[in-house]
Each structure stands twice: as structure tokens, then as C-alpha cells.
């Protein structure tokens, strides 16, 4: 009786997920194996040719590798910035806690398009940064900050920082303050306490933050499209181009699937390497 009620209660969510999540996924997967049509989305029969096209052209392979590199560097940089911030935010006696949280969450309060445009104003050849440096006489030619990988990484780091800070902060808040105190009483200096006790205990948060930021970076479209422009394209941008501009649904689907598999595989390996054997 109770079990039937539980199933009934789960039904709306299950239907919603099946219709709006599983079906589109299946469509993408099947599309990836269909032939392109002439004037129609799909032609006759199935093929592996779409994947052949990806893996036979250095352009697509290189682009995927660059996308992965952008994801990896963005993850590493957000991690390095987030760690000290998260540890400070997790302190029980935090001055102006509300304000601090607000600042951390602020990137999420503005739409992603506006945020990315904001970065173009800062990073462009005639942008705030380059003009200031030129006015001060520090540079003759503008620094290449936009339309390249560096610009994309800078903007993505800003956008995804909260997704790294929040899980680490919550892991750190879960640490009993007497545990680092115990380490000190056993003779551990400040830095040793961080390295041997606090960081390992923050690991569950670090792990989920890294996975979140990496996956979000791989799949991000708006920021790379606006900052990278026509010069640097990530795989996600090319997928959208193929789907919308050049109307190559099967090829776009194959590219999307490739990115998903490679990205998913990377996440699995990462999770495996950072496996946590203990629990609190």
C-alpha cells in the first residue's frame, strides 16, 4: 500500500524526466549515427561516417583537446582561487557573513550573456584593461586578451567560481574544529594542519567542485562564443554552429556525443583517482 503511494508520488517526476531528459538524449545519440540528408535533416540509413569525419580531421580533434584544456585550466584556476575563499567563508565567526556570501554568489545574479559582454568590455583591444595599460605607458600594443583561449579561461573562471567555492565551503563547515586542534596538540604546525588534515577533509567538496566546474566549462557555449569569437572555437560552439548555421544535425550530434563521452570519461577517471575511502 505504502509502496504504491510512493510510486504514485514519483510518477510525475519520472514522466517529466523521461519526456524532457531521456528522449532528447536518445534523439541525440541516434541522430549521431544517421546519414545527412539533402534538404532534410536526415538521409536514409545509419552510418559511422559522422565520427569518421571528426576523427580524421585534426581541426576537430585539436578543437576538442583545446576545449578539454580550457576545462582543465579553468578548473585548476577556480580551485586555487576558491580554496582560501571557501576556508574563510566557513569560519564560524565571520564578519559580515551575508555580504561575503552575496559577493561570492554575485556572478550568478547576472545573466550569462550580460556577464560575458562585460568581459568583452574589459578584455577587448580597446577595452578597459588595454586602454589603461596604454595610458600608463606600460604597453605599446594591446595585449591579446580576447579572441583567444586565455580570454575564455578568464571569463569562465569568473562565471564558475561560485560552483567551486560553495561545495568546498560546505565540506569545510562540516569539519569539527576540535580536529585541527587535535592535530596542533599532537605537534602539527599551521601549514601541516592544512596539508595533512584540513585539505584531506575538504576533499569531498574539492572533488564535487572540480567535477562541476569541469563539466560546466566543457559544455559552456555563450562565454566561449562571445569571448572566443571566430578565432577560437570550442567544441560546444562548433556543435551549435553545425546544428543551427550549417544544418548538419547528424554531424553536430556526433560531435556533441564525442564531447560528452570524452568529458564523462575524464570525470570518471578523476573521480576514481580522488576516491574517498573514509566517511565522517
Amino acid at each position: 500500500m505504502r509502496q504504491r503511494t510512493a510510486i504514485l508520488l514519483l510518477l510525475p517526476a519520472a514522466i517529466l524526466l523521461t519526456v524532457f531528459l531521456a528522449v532528447p538524449y536518445v534523439t541525440v545519440i541516434t541522430s549521431a549515427f544517421r546519414t545527412p540528408g539533402e534538404g532534410t535533416p536526415f538521409g536514409e540509413g545509419y552510418t559511422l561516417g559522422n565520427f569518421g569525419r571528426i576523427f580524421s580531421q585534426w581541426y576537430y580533434i585539436g578543437q576538442a583537446l583545446n576545449t578539454m584544456l580550457i576545462g582543465a585550466i579553468t578548473t585548476l584556476v577556480t580551485l586555487l582561487i576558491a580554496l582560501p575563499v571557501a576556508f574563510q567563508l566557513a569560519r564560524p565567526k565571520l564578519f559580515l557573513r551575508g555580504l561575503a556570501y552575496g559577493i561570492v554568489l554575485s556572478p550568478l545574479l547576472v545573466g550569462i550573456v550580460i556577464r560575458s559582454y562585460g568581459w568583452t568590455i574589459l578584455l577587448g583591444n580597446n577595452g578597459v584593461i588595454n586602454r589603461t595599460l596604454r595610458d600608463w605607458g606600460l604597453i605599446d600594443h594591446p595585449l591579446p586578451l580576447m579572441y583567444n583561449t586565455l580570454g575564455i579561461i578568464i571569463a569562465l573562471t569568473h562565471v564558475f567560481l561560485p560552483f567551486m567555492i560553495l561545495p568546498i565551503m560546505s565540506a569545510v563547515q562540516g569539519i569539527d574544529p576540535s580536529v585541527p586542534a587535535a592535530a596542533r596538540s599532537l605537534g602539527a604546525k599551521r601549514f601541516t594542519v592544512i596539508r595533512r588534515v584540513l585539505l584531506p577533509l575538504a576533499m569531498p567538496g574539492i572533488q564535487s567542485g572540480c567535477i562541476l566546474v569541469f563539466v560546466l566549462s566543457l559544455s559552456s557555449y555563450v562565454t566561449p562564443a562571445l569571448i572566443g569569437g571566430f578565432r577560437v572555437k570550442t567544441t560546444a560552439v562548433t556543435v551549435v554552429d553545425a546544428m543551427l548555421d550549417t544544418f548538419q544535425w547528424p554531424f553536430g550530434a556526433a560531435l556533441a556525443l564525442t564531447l560528452a563521452v570524452v568529458g564523462g570519461g575524464t570525470v570518471l577517471i578523476f573521480a576514481r583517482l580522488t576516491r574517498i575511502k573514509w566517511k565522517t
Binding site: 576540535s178 580536529v179 587535535a182 577533509l201 576533499m203 573514509w278 565522517t280
Partner: peptide, 9 residues
């Protein structure tokens, strides 16, 4: 310590 404060990891 009262709550033992063992290193859980």
C-alpha cells in the same frame, strides 16, 4: 576531546 576529534580520513 569530548567528541574524540579523531582524524576521520
Amino acid at each position: 576531546f569530548q567528541n574524540y576529534a579523531l582524524f576521520p580520513h
